[in-house]
């Protein structure tokens, strides 16, 4: 009934030679057997977008967008309203199909061929701009649903958490500082706490790539600082792509910043380079 194969994922294939020849970049893809569902990052990059174009009724939300994100990187994406930041996330997560261009997850997984569910299983998690948690379920249950496990309907009928899974949920609860609120309904949380819960749900999913759309919107300064700390600690273990408007926050966490404007990349580099780029200044300050 579903067009992805759950069982294949993450099981090392006996013929897989992934990693053994990774150091010689020239022939990195030579002689390796492609493992279905396995994310191949031997070239260093985990996400490639090439010449992606999306138009809505003639308006080009993305216009020949090229972007490459390295495995384990923390990438910040900024840009004025309507620059195409959210559309870009929609394309990566399968919500929107691009009119042209390719989107690859690792070397082998073509994301434009997969649906939202399959992409989530492949290892890309997403936090929405408006915090979306399951309000009628408890905080614990929100994390339970997010937890990486067999998510087919039949299995859910008899699913029971084992000790390890409970520990994992408790661990995430501690990370997002919601241990106290674990058994209350998620709908009662404050805005900032909902943001955290959603980040926690991403962590429970254990994805390779986390897409975070305005993660600190509506947070207090204290919460923002804690979020920055959390993201920095996740860097390396996961790949993070953060879309934000809060420049102070970007300043704290950013290594590489990509500036989007009218659907394509305007500038890319470290914060100082980007801030001094005359094109960026023109876009942000008006002409």
């Amino acid at each position: 009934m579903s067009d992805y194969e759950y069982g294949n994922r993450c099981i090392p294939h006996p013929y897989a030679l992934v990693g053994t020849q990774a150091d010689s970049a020239s022939d990195a893809s030579y002689g390796r057997v492609v493992v279905p569902g396995e994310v191949d990052v031997t070239h260093g990059a985990i996400l490639y977008l090439e010449s992606v174009t999306v138009s809505f009724d003639g308006f080009k939300a993305l216009n020949d967008l090229n972007l490459s994100v390295d495995d384990g990187e923390l990438r910040c994406i900024i840009g004025p309203n309507g620059a195409g930041k959210t559309t870009m996330m929609d394309v990566i997560t399968g919500k929107t199909r691009p009119d042209a261009g390719t989107v690859y997850f690792g070397q082998t997984i073509d994301l434009t061929r997969l649906n939202e569910v399959a992409i989530a299983h492949a290892g890309i998690g997403r936090k929405f701009q408006k915090p979306t948690v399951f309000e009628n379920l408890s905080v614990f249950e929100n994390l339970e649903l997010a937890l990486k496990m067999d998510k087919r309907a039949w299995k859910s009928l008899f699913a029971k958490l084992n000790g390890e899974q409970r520990d994992r949920i408790d661990e995430v609860l501690a990370t997002i500082k919601l241990s106290e609120a674990a058994h209350g309904p998620a709908g009662r949380l404050s805005h900032g706490q909902k943001q955290w819960l959603e980040i926690g749900m991403l962590l429970a999913q254990s994805p390779r790539v986390l897409l975070l759309d305005e993660p600190v919107a509506g947070m207090t300064d204290q919460e923002t600082a804690e979020t920055a700390e959390l993201f920095l600690s996740l860097k390396g273990k996961h790949t993070l792509i953060v879309v934000e408007h809060d420049m102070d926050f970007i300043n704290t966490i950013a290594h590489t910043v990509t500036v989007l404007h009218e659907g394509h990349v305007l500038a890319e580099g470290d914060m100082a380079t980007v801030q001094n780029d005359p094109k960026v200044i023109e876009v942000y300050l008006g002409r």
Binding site: K95, A120, E135, E141, L145, S156
Partner: peptide, 22 residues
Amino acid sequence: KFGRVLAAIRDAESRTMFVGYD
């Protein structure tokens, strides 16, 4: 858990999909 997934679909269907439930 099936029932909780149903409630999740009822309250936020697209969120449920991005969490990995069809």
